[in-house]
Simulated assay, not measured.
Amino acid sequence: MIFIHGTPSHSFEWRNVAPRIEAAGHRTIVYDLLGYGASERPSSRDTSVAAQTELLEHLLAKLGLDRVAIVAHDIGGAIGQRFAVAHPGRVRRLMLMDTVSYDSWPSPTWRKIIDEHLDEYRNLTQNAFDALLTRQLEMTVTDERRMAGPVLDAYLAPHRSALGRSSFFEHQVRHYDAKYTEEISGELDRLTMPVRILWGAADQWQPLDYALRLSEDIPTAELVVVPDAGHFVMEDDPARVTREIVDFLAGPSNPLGDNHIRNS
Results as ranks from 00 to 15, higher is better:
160 R>D: 09
161 S>Y: 09
161 S>E: 06
161 S>V: 03
162 A>L: 10
163 L>K: 09
163 L>E: 15
163 L>G: 03
164 G>S: 06
164 G>I: 09
164 G>A: 08
165 R>P: 02
165 R>V: 13
166 S>K: 11
166 S>F: 14
167 S>K: 06
167 S>M: 08
167 S>C: 10
168 F>H: 08
168 F>T: 05
168 F>W: 13
169 F>E: 04
170 E>A: 14
171 H>Q: 07
171 H>G: 03
173 V>Y: 08
173 V>L: 15
174 R>A: 15
175 H>D: 09
175 H>P: 05
175 H>A: 07
176 Y>A: 14
176 Y>N: 11
177 D>Q: 03
177 D>Y: 01
177 D>K: 02
177 D>P: 01
178 A>L: 11
179 K>Y: 06
179 K>I: 12
181 T>S: 11
181 T>N: 09
181 T>F: 06
182 E>A: 07
182 E>T: 13
183 E>S: 11
184 I>C: 04
184 I>N: 03
185 S>E: 15
186 G>F: 05
187 E>F: 04
187 E>I: 02
188 L>R: 03
188 L>H: 01
188 L>E: 05
189 D>E: 08
189 D>K: 05
190 R>C: 04
190 R>A: 12
191 L>R: 02
191 L>Q: 02
191 L>K: 02
193 M>N: 09
193 M>Q: 11
193 M>G: 04
193 M>E: 07
194 P>N: 09
195 V>A: 00
195 V>T: 06
195 V>L: 02
196 R>G: 03
197 I>C: 02
197 I>M: 05
197 I>P: 00
198 L>H: 00
198 L>G: 00
198 L>M: 08
200 G>N: 03
200 G>R: 00
201 A>V: 11
201 A>E: 15
201 A>T: 07
201 A>S: 10
201 A>M: 12
202 A>S: 13
203 D>W: 01
203 D>T: 03
205 W>Q: 07
205 W>A: 10
206 Q>R: 11
206 Q>P: 04
206 Q>K: 11
206 Q>N: 15
206 Q>W: 08
207 P>L: 14
207 P>H: 15
207 P>R: 12
207 P>S: 14
207 P>Q: 13
209 D>E: 15
209 D>K: 13
209 D>Y: 12
210 Y>K: 04
210 Y>Q: 08
211 A>Q: 02
212 L>I: 11
212 L>Y: 15
213 R>T: 15
213 R>F: 12
213 R>L: 15
214 L>C: 05
214 L>R: 01
214 L>T: 02
214 L>K: 00
